[in-house]
Design a protein around this nucleic acid. Sequence first.
DNA 1: CGCTTAATTGAACATACTCAAAATTTGTGG
DNA 2: CCACAAATTTTGAGTATGTTCAATTAAGCG
Lengths: 235, 235
Amino acid sequence: MKPDLSKIPLSCQDCTNNSSTFSCLSSEEKDELSVDKGNNFYKKGQTIFYEGNHPHGLYCIHSGKVKISKLGEEGKEQILRLAGKAETLGYRALLGNEPYKATATALEDSYVCYLSKRQFFELITKNNNLCLNMIHTLADDLRDSEQKLLDISQLTAKERISSALLILKDKFGYQEDGKTIDVKLTRRELGEFSGVTTETTIRTLSELNKENVIELKGKEIQILDEKNLTHRLHH
Amino acid sequence: MKPDLSKIPLSCQDCTNNSSTFSCLSSEEKDELSVDKGNNFYKKGQTIFYEGNHPHGLYCIHSGKVKISKLGEEGKEQILRLAGKAETLGYRALLGNEPYKATATALEDSYVCYLSKRQFFELITKNNNLCLNMIHTLADDLRDSEQKLLDISQLTAKERISSALLILKDKFGYQEDGKTIDVKLTRRELGEFSGVTTETTIRTLSELNKENVIELKGKEIQILDEKNLTHRLHH
DNA sequence: CGCTTAATTGAACATACTCAAAATTTGTGG
DNA sequence: CCACAAATTTTGAGTATGTTCAATTAAGCG
C-alpha cells in the first residue's frame, strides 16, 4: 500500500479534521498558515522528529497515531504521551524556543502536515485566540504530565497498567464493537507508556485477563470491566 | 515576628521583583492589574490553595518559597515543583479553566500577592505579549515535568536525590558561602520531591555525606562536589 | 522545660526487575 | 503464497532495590 498524499488537502481551510487548536482561525488565516505547508507520510515505526534537534515548524497529524517519548541514560524509553488525528506535535519545543526534548514516532502509517515556523509565529503574534488555544493545550498537557508523574511515583505496576489502559481508551476510544481499544501497541510500548518492564506488563495483562477485566486478542485489548479498572485507581 | 504587609507595594508598578511573566506590561497595565490586588502573608506550613478548589485569581510570590504538591491515593504527597520570589502560582488551573490539580504550601514565611482573575484575563486577552509569556512559562514547566517523569521512572533513589539537590541549587542558588543550598526542606519533603521515602532519603544523604559529595548541617545542605552529582546523572 | 515533630538506624520483606530460554507472531523476499 | 529470519511474546527463577515497620535519638517550639 503506497502512500497517497493527495488525501491531504493543500490548505488547512479544506481539512476535514476539526482541530481544536486551529478552530479559532478564519479561512484566510488558515490559507495563510498553509502557504508553506508540507504533506508527509510516515510509515509505522518511522521517526517524525528527534530529541535534541531544533524545530523548524509545527506538525499536525492528519491521520494516524504517534508516540512522543524520551530516552533514559540506559537507553530505556519512556513514552510521555500519545497523539492522534488533528493533534499538533512539537509545539512545546517550538513555543519554548528550544530543541526537541522528546522524539516523535509513528505508531501506525500516518499522514502528517508540516506548518512552517514563520507562518505559525506570524499568526500567533497577531491572533490572540490562537495564543489562548495554545495555552489551553499546554495547560492540559501539563496537567496530564503531572498526574502521570504522581501515578508513576506512587502506583503499583498493576495500577499503572490499569491506568494506562483507561488513558488509551479515553484518548482513542473503542472500535465498532464497543470494547476493543482503538490503538495497537506492543507489550513493550505499553510498558514504556506505563513505566513498567515488558515482562511485568505481560504478566499483569495476563492477570487482568484471568480476572475477566480485559480480553487479549494479540495486540488488541478489549476492556470487559471498565469499572474494575477505574475502581482500582480510586482506592 | 509579625507580618508587615506594607513591605508589598500596592501596585505591581512599584514592585522591586522583576517578574519575567509581567515584564512585558506597561506601567499603566501594571496599575490596571493591581486594581484588586490582595497582599497576603502566609506563615511557614500554611496552605495557599488546595487541590480541588476553583481558582479565582493568580498568586505571585513577592518573597518566600512555596511547594506545589499532589496527594496520592494512600495520602502520600508528591512535590511537583517549587516556586520562589517573583514566580506565579496557580496559573495552570486558571488558564486551563479548571479546579486546582495541586496544593500550594508555604515552605517559609512568605508574602504573596493575589491578582484578580478578571483583571488578569482582561489583560491577557488584549496583550499578546503577556499571552506569549504565559506560553513560555507553561512550556518550561511542561519540559521540567516531563524530565522529572523520566527521572522518577528510570533513575535509582540515589540518582533521584542527586538530581533533586541539583534542581534545588539551580532554582534557589547558594547562600553567601557559595555552597549551602538556599532552601530548607525536611528530609520528608526532599523525599517527596524526589519520589523516595523519608528513610531512603536519609540513608542516601548520609551516603553522599560519607563520600564527601555533600555536607549536612541539620536542614542545611552544602554541595561540596557538584561535578560528582552531575556526573552521576549523565552516565 | 516538656511535648510534639523530625531525624535516624535496623531488620525483615515485597515488588518488580534482570537474565535466560522457549514459543509464537510478524514481516519479507524468493 | 510459502519459508525463513527477525522480532515479539511468554514463562520461569533468582535477585536487588527500596519499602515498610518499629524503635530510638535529636531537634523545635510554646
